[in-house]
Amino acid sequence: MPDPESASPLTVTDLACRRGGRLVFAALSFRLAAGRALLVTGPNGAGKSSLLKLLAGLLAPAGGTLERPGHIAYLGHDNALKAVLSVEENLRFWAGLSGGAAVEDRLARALDVTGLAALADVPARLLSAGQKRRAGLARVLASGAPLWLLDEPTVGLDTASIDRLGPAFSAHLEGGGMIVATSHVPLPLGAPEQLAMGGR
């Protein structure tokens, strides 16, 4: 459960992003209160991923200001799994880096929700694409970070796995957490706010 008092709201005022000389988007403003979810939509190349990377601190904004909680969990296109290590070893490393209280049971619950508990000791190289994606999601679930940034989280997942994420997402939101996600597939986020990008 993220600790609510550190969940300061996410406020973005006329944010601009330039990548490789190309202006991806500009004058973007929105505010996300604690306990709310934001679904970012728009065509490919509209800058959805760039926005998430900006929010995650992976990119420096070309303009505008950005206020966000100190501790974030980011799920990009890759799952950051070392093939030679087991699923649990991978997740334990990242949970250890996130720190915070009760790492053990956060880890256990994350493995449970993503249905990977039975494969905890299996080397990551043996996992299917869908299972690796679920491992990435498990990392986010176990991070205990108030703000979750999810870039196409359900790629390669079957509907059963997606539905199982519903309770975890709503529990996170009810606990005062925030989720910003991009997805072409409907996500179990209840009634998220919408942000359409790339209206050029």
Partner: peptide
């Protein structure tokens, strides 16, 4: 055996 476990988990 590990691969079988992974396979079995993938298709419940």
């Amino acid at each position: 055996a590990a691969e079988r476990r992974v396979m079995a988990q993938e298709v419940p």
